[in-house]
Design a protein around this nucleic acid. Structure first.
Lengths: 170, 170
DNA sequence: TCTCGACATGTCAACAGTGGAATGTAGGCT
DNA sequence: AGCCTACATTCCACTGTTGACATGTCGAGA
């Protein structure tokens, strides 16, 4: 159900078309809640059907600009404040760790050192992104920076863990 | 496709029935790859159909004990060594952060301090689990401890981040 | 002996997510 | 004028996930 709220969240900032939202998902939200084209258009139609958003304007090429309604904003606020977040995150990265015993110690270590690299490059990518944005002191900047900091810390943590883990294998 | 590999992984350690596997998912794998009963039974039937596992024995109450085949083991090894893990993890926790601007600063801060608590209790739960297990030096112990350590570090990281983030809000 | 809880499996509808195909338009460049 | 790219949407088939319902058996203890 989170795609719905991701779209409401983006539309709470500014009105946008499906195409605009698709671009936003490809860039800024790609690391948090990826979504593809078909999913976004389908969800927008559903959201408009239930009155949480409306078509505010139509443009060239059949472009439909959606705008959040009061009802949609209420739903977004409800989700933010009342709905308890999921406690579990499915992680195929970690799932593999449980079964590394079926591999040779060398192969298992290789998996973990690959994770070190993956985390390192993830970190650097986010660092670059961080430096390329000129942060003002608006809401989007404040919360965007907070989310980005999470990504940096997460990758740093995972890197250190994977380094430690590789050493644990005799 | 990871449920498939989770089941293969568990069966690579020892043969088990759907019911056994269900119990394992409820306890040890619940934090990494949750799965419910219907999903597990459906997947086992599919796996048996494609020859990756076989019914090795039948017991009382229609119990079917599954065993991994050589083909299944090969598939598991392939997944562990060749298939590159997903880079993105969907996180509704983090998604909310992007949109905290629609709330008052007090409400936004409350969300973050709730995350502090959630992370803290997650940490303590894992710490208890860690202390309640008597770790030998078998494969399952080695990799189980590594996975658990990940959970501890993750929760610690998230806690510190959420504390820092709450302070960023004016 | 009876009953109840744990054991054990199967099925189905609904929703969420993936990937690809199809279709067409507006505007900028040569 | 013609072409190409970016803009823009819709539909479809398939896979994965959730939750509920249905069904039945074994064994321990009252």
């Amino acid at each position: 159900m989170s795609l719905k709220h991701a779209l409401l969240g983006l539309l709470s900032d500014r009105r946008a078309s499906g195409y605009d939202l698709l671009k936003t998902f490809e860039t800024s939200l790609a690391n948090v809640w990826p979504a593809n084209q078909s999913q976004i258009y389908t969800e927008l139609t559903k959201l408009a059907g239930s009155g949480l958003i409306t078509v505010a304007a139509e443009g060239p090429r059949g472009r439909k600009e959606y705008e959040i309604t009061d009802e949609g904003l209420a739903e977004l606020r409800h989700w933010l404040t009342e709905v308890t977040p999921q406690r579990v995150i499915r992680s195929d990265v970690l799932l593999r760790v449980f079964f590394l015993g079926v591999l040779s110690p060398e192969q298992a270590r290789a998996y973990l050192t690959d994770l070190v690299d993956m985390s390192q490059s993830g970190y650097e990518q986010l660092r670059q992104l961080h430096d390329s944005i000129d942060w003002d002191d608006g809401n989007l900047s404040v919360y965007g920076r907070i989310a980005l900091e999470y990504g940096l810390r997460f990758n740093a943590m995972r890197r250190e863990w994977a380094e430690w883990a590789a050493q644990q294998i005799k």
